[in-house]
């Protein structure tokens, strides 16, 4: 079963990381899901693939009533991001799914009705979670052409989807990055191959460098915190992406 870790709490405003499933079949990429709660409402960020739904659901249930989930946020359209959508909707048919307008007619192939989808325009938007304002931050072409990250300015946390992701060896299952130099080696190949545009990367780095971020939470691998956040942004800024091979 996946583990839940509360990475931020201020009263009923919480961020819960749902990470590392030791029983996950090896052919499925490991994913992190994040639950943000505020005032009894919850939004699940990148709810994950259908195959990991039982593990994510049971972990989330230990922290939060899944029927109180008001929305999911899908950073982009990939199956490891949101192919579990139909299963989450079983528990709350009225739940909304925030996703780039670009994918609003593609993601419904995973489930949902016309009413399920809230389209995010290219420039991003504010998403309200029971009074808490979350900001959908554009991250197009990193790696998906319609891609968003989610910023919580109150918690100073940026959910960064595939940016910052690392494909870690099985024995490196820490929640946070502890040794940046050792960790980033597991992120380099991923970013070079999955990220398609140096121009898009530069714009993203400029944008997020101006944000007040305590934690940068990727969908795969460990969370960057403190000084490692800006260390990562600098590293990413210098990296040449969109490259196949060495």
């Amino acid at each position: 079963m996946k583990k839940t870790n509360v990475i931020y709490q201020d009263g009923d405003h919480k961020w819960v990381a749902i990470v590392r499933d030791p029983e996950r079949p090896g052919h499925l990429v490991d994913t992190n899901e994040y639950l943000v709660t505020h005032g009894g409402a919850g939004i699940l960020l990148d709810p994950g693939g259908a195959e990991v739904f039982p593990a994510v659901f049971s972990a989330l249930s230990s922290e939060f009533d899944p029927t109180a989930l008001s929305a999911v946020f899908a950073s982009h359209q990939d199956p490891d991001i949101c192919s579990s959508l139909a299963l989450w909707l079983e528990f709350n048919p009225g739940m909304r799914c925030y996703v780039s307008w670009l994918w609003s007619s593609f993601v419904p192939h995973f489930g949902g009705t016309a009413e399920t989808f809230a389209c995010i325009p290219d420039e991003g938007m504010e998403i309200s979670l029971n009074g808490l304002q979350l900001q959908a931050v554009p991250a197009h072409y990193l790696h998906s052409s319609g891609n968003f990250h989610l910023y919580d300015r109150q918690a100073k946390i940026l959910f960064s989807g595939d940016v910052g992701a690392a494909l870690l060896p099985a024995d490196q299952d820490g929640l946070f990055v502890e040794n940046f130099d050792a960790h980033i080696k597991h992120a380099e190949g991923f970013h070079r191959r999955w990220m398609g545009s140096n121009e898009a990367k530069r714009r993203w780095c400029e944008r997020v460098a101006q944000m007040d971020i305590d934690m940068l939470c990727p969908q795969h691998g460990a969370i960057y915190r403190g000084a490692d956040v800006h260390r990562f942004i600098s590293w990413f800024d210098d990296l040449q992406v969109g490259i196949v091979g060495s």
Binding site: M1, F53, P54, A55, F57, S58, S61, S62, D65, P66, T67, L87, F91
Partner: peptide, 9 residues
């Protein structure tokens, strides 16, 4: 999912 979580719903 229901077996793992024992969620009442």
């Amino acid at each position: 999912a229901v077996d793992l979580s024992a969620n009442p719903a």
